[in-house]
């Protein structure tokens, strides 16, 4: 990363405050055993916009992302207190079906993780899980998802080829297509570009701008320039706390907390 001391350039076309809140987190604490990983988190996330989580590594940004689709459930001895409300539902209540939640809240990981199957079968994996068997219907979903992930033109002639034959950037877009194929409302991206070259990164950044018209995107990034470039709202984490969240242009130009300012001007992190 560059060692600039200026605050990153913020994209100019930020919409004004006409977002609606889709995720509402209130007084949430998360513990791994006795380790207090997230402390009294209060945060709202707007619908059909890009929200970026930034902060030094180990600050809890990925942990919070993983509470949104309850992937943390799989880590033993994890305990959550407080409220995580998505579109009017407390997702940690007993009535919630975790599988349905994860269908509605898709996720893309840091390392592209396609299955050792064909491109087609990778995208069709989710729809098949949820009971779609009709070939024509699957074909339609695969095509639509690959188109949305801006991959269709590159792979439409070899859908039967192994997903491993794709480049790293293509694999990551395949993972995005796979996540979109189950028709989620929200897409979580956990440092989805950190393992990619600059050109592939740019492609995925452009893609997020397309996708936010239809989906709510929450992304973790280690790169605050990326947050500045593509997000509408930015959340700054430090030591398991949400220090500050605001519209991206405002947070980068006029942070209200001294720690945020130190971080975005490169004094630490």
């Amino acid at each position: 990363m560059s060692t600039t001391t200026e605050a990153p350039q913020v994209k100019e076309t930020t919409k004004t405050v006409d977002f609606k809140t889709i995720i509402d987190i209130k007084d949430m604490d998360l513990y791994y055993g006795t380790y207090h990983a997230l402390k009294k988190v209060n945060l709202t996330i707007p619908e059909k916009a890009v929200t970026a989580f930034i902060g030094p590594s180990g600050c809890g940004k990925s942990t919070l992302l993983r509470t949104l689709n309850r992937m943390n459930d799989m880590i033993p001895n994890t305990r959550i207190e407080g409220l995580v409300d998505i579109a009017g539902t407390d997702i940690y209540s007993n009535e919630v079906d975790v599988e349905t939640l994860r269908k509605k809240v898709g996720m893309v990981f840091q390392q592209a993780n396609p299955f050792p199957k064909s491109i087609y079968d990778n995208v069709a994996y989710g729809p098949r899980l949820h009971g779609i068997k009709n070939k024509a219907q699957l074909d339609e979903i695969v095509e639509q998802s690959l188109k949305q992930a801006a991959l269709w033109n590159e792979v439409k002639d070899f859908l039967k080829r192994s997903a491993f034959s794709l480049s790293g950037g293509q694999q990551q877009r395949l993972c995005i297509a796979r996540a979109l194929a189950v028709n989620p409302e929200i897409l979580l991206m956990d440092e989805a570009t950190s393992a990619l070259d600059p050109i592939s990164t740019l492609k995925i950044e452009e893609l997020t701008q397309e996708l936010k018209n239809k989906y709510t995107i929450v992304m973790v990034t280690h790169n605050m320039h990326q947050a500045a470039r593509i997000s509408d709202q930015t959340v700054f984490f430090l030591n398991g706390e949400v220090v500050e969240f605001d519209q991206t242009d405002k947070l980068f130009s006029n942070p209200s907390d001294k720690r945020t300012e130190d971080y975005i001007t490169g004094r630490f992190g």
Binding site: N69, M71, M74, E99, T100, L101, R102, K103, G106, M107, F109, Q111, N113, P114, F115, P116, K117, Y125, G126, R128, L129, H130, C175, R178, A179, V182
Partner: peptide, 27 residues
């Protein structure tokens, strides 16, 4: 079988058995 294969499947809303039978075992 890498953890990531399981995570990918769970994140798509697969149940435990679906993940085991469709992702872990084929790998």
């Amino acid at each position: 079988v890498p953890r990531a294969r399981r995570d990918a499947s769970f994140a798509l809303g697969a149940t435990k058995w679906q993940t085991v039978s469709r992702s872990v075992l084929p790998s």
